[in-house]
Design a protein around this nucleic acid. Structure first.
Lengths: 65, 65
DNA sequence: ACTAGATGTAATATATAAATTGCATGTGCA
DNA sequence: TGCACATGCAATTTATATATTACATCTAGT
């Protein structure tokens, strides 16, 4: 699942660790989502989007390769 | 996880069964998602959105109660 | 050169999404 | 009335997202 989480997170200068704590998961989970190797739950996607001040579509909809 | 799947599906006159088959899950899974009792995976959300010609935000973002 | 912070990755355990099966109810139609 | 179809719902099983722990690499700062 390719997505825009990493590039968006970096723009906010937030670390994986901090984002993970904010949304209630571990750093590893964020890392794998950013790599596109996880198929995260809707709840987690929404939490990440809100934390990064984006919407679901911004981060996860038809992300260009 | 409140969402707009049911109302959107009904507008297309598609049954739970048919939507389920199109996105590769069972009728029960669609039923539970529509009821808001499941926390579906991102992949499944995307598949449902595409099948209903909507985006993630249309179906799953800040759905009004 | 050394250290601390950020990230990548891998193995195993746990929680939960989803499948499977089965039965009940309601509605439209012959 | 009776049948086919759509849906609700519950119990159990299976697949997989996520946690946990641990170690490695890389970079910036001292």
């Amino acid at each position: 699942m390719k997505n825009n989480v990493k590039i968006t997170r970096l723009k906010t200068s937030m670390t994986q660790e901090k984002l993970a704590r904010k949304v209630g998961v571990t750093r590893q989970t964020i890392g794998l989502i950013e790599k596109g190797e996880y198929n995260p739950s809707l709840q987690l996607c929404v939490a990440i989007a809100k934390e990064l001040n984006k919407t679901l579509d911004d981060l996860f909809w038809e992300v260009e390769v």
